[in-house]
Design a binder for these strands. Structure first.
Lengths: 155, 155
DNA sequence: TATTGTTATACTCTATAACTATA
DNA sequence: TATAGTTATAGAGTATAACAATA
């Protein structure tokens, strides 16, 4: 029997065959890099994705943001605050529902987002280097399937 | 222009094309399910993966665990404590280095791990339902590539 | 009554600095 | 001096309960 104490080759064969393990490893490695890119623009992962949706959907409400990104409403407060304090979005009370706020990106916010998006896409290309467009597309559809299957109600 | 306030179809086209976004979404959905499975056995994600390595590599030291799983040493203390308190591993001072501990799974620990592993594999199969073995293998190799590319030194 | 956004709070995972005991 | 493990601590991200204002 090989004991680890006197050897350098440690095996993780069991874990390496698990999809969840691969997913988690890939994601945490990737997020270190994405985090650094976001930080160059004063953003975090959550503020980047919220800003993306606000740029793409002017007038969006916080509840819609939360639904789309699976973020609990209390956790959106600081995210929206950060974007507002950075001058990237404006928050106006909705004309049809005075409880709600309509979120819209400022020109500054849209411009910053587009610059950040370019950098994120460059990182994406670096991460998928040596993969063909078809392989990337297949992998993205696989990831969407995993998410869909994982979100299904328990059998 | 379509404003979100008066519409139900909100678009996330920009985000959906980003590999990092797909990765993060898939992982966080998946981890909710894995977490529930681990909990059935009194485990967490981190205690499960540590236990797996200890079962597979008897006598493993904490520093080796940390290197393999990219866990900082301070964060291993509670993980190893949990496994020890649950009677799943034993911790003996190494005979060759009195600073270090040799970690070994107990029979109870190995048995529990094998039961948990079965449940995790069942979840894996549910998540990859409708995928062929070749497709799963391809996806796992893609995930390994993403992790490798992300871990590379900055250009 | 139900919903929008908020506050307060807690739990997990992660990260760093500083310590101890051995090497 | 370097390494193994520890302690203390801080920062994210996430989750729930309870509240005010409005629908």
């Amino acid at each position: 029997m090989v004991t680890a104490g006197d050897d350098h080759s440690i095996s993780d064969n069991t874990l390496r065959e698990l999809t969840g393990y691969r997913l988690q490893r890939a994601t945490s490695s990737a997020m270190v890099r994405y985090k650094a890119v976001f930080a160059e623009f004063g953003l975090r992962r959550t503020t980047f994705s919220c800003l993306s949706l606000i740029v793409e959907n002017p007038g969006l409400r916080q509840s819609q943001l939360g639904d789309m990104l699976a973020i609990e409403r209390p956790n959106l407060v600081q995210i929206v605050d950060d974007l507002k304090r950075g001058g990237l979005i404006v928050r106006e009370t909705s004309k049809t529902d005075r409880r709600a706020y309509a979120l819209t990106a400022t020109d500054t916010g849209a411009a910053l987002f587009n610059k950040a998006l370019k950098a994120v896409r460059a990182l994406d290309e670096m991460m998928t280097a040596e993969m063909t467009d078809a392989e990337i597309k297949q992998m993205q559809s696989d990831l969407a399937r995993l998410e869909r299957n994982a979100s299904q109600a328990k059998p």
